[in-house]
Amino acid sequence: MTTNSHDQDPGENEVTGQPGTFLTRPFAGLGRKVVSWVNHMGAAAIFLGKACIMIFRPKQIPAIIQQIYYIGAKSITIIMLVGFFTGMVLGLQSYHALVKFGAQGALGTLVALSLVRELGPVLTAIMITARAGSAMTAEIGIQRISEQIDALDTMRIDPLKFLISPRIVAAIISFPLLTALFDLVGILGGYVSGVVLLGINAGTYFHRVQSSVEMKDVTDGFIKALVFAVIVTTVCCYQGYFTHMRTDSYGAKSVSLSTTSAVVLSCVLILVSDYIVTSFLI
């Protein structure tokens, strides 16, 4: 097969055959890249759409609960840990910045707003990508290469319904909840570094936290969390589900590459979409 495709690959001959192709080649490559990206975007959107339709099929609840367990419940510790230290470092850094203006009283405002608006949703999403997203890709990828997904097909079980839909629902439930947890633990972390360690007035801190955060900030944070939930699950499941379509590798190697690209792509898309969503919401 390899020899066959080698013989018939027109690109091979073009390079040597025509002068000047070395100039046009990068553009052709770029064009192909763009086309393939657009293809993937379309495929991922269709994939998401189909999986969303399948959410409302019967017998989904147990699967969803199981996925909430893996995506949500098992992430509590790591989210609390990361949230706490994020809050602490935020408190520490902002204190030293604010104290120059004698405005250390505004520490609560700074910590709370940065957590609720930005850091909470973004860092939560990135942490879940690392914990649950990579696991999703690897698990689905292995199921793909060991023909388990084909086996589902032969048993008339829709693989999207069975594997993807519960994960999407579970992520949509888990992301906002974990984000809320992250925010609160982060504010507590800010309290520990600002009040306990650096000696700001506790009342001022909490007063500032309470008075500065608006309902709009809270809902914006949740909207972001929901957007990230959909992006992360779609990217991770898509990469795993189409592991076998990779042209750069086969078998276990392709699962590892899919997992890597799922995590990288998820993180990039989280930050890009964060900017887009923020500019819409402001």
């Binding site: 023909e147 086996a151 032969t154």
Partner: peptide
């Protein structure tokens, strides 16, 4: 119709 896969394709 049932299908038995070459490598079993069991859900591990």
């Amino acid at each position: 119709v049932s299908y038995m896969f070459q490598n079993n394709a069991l859900f591990d």
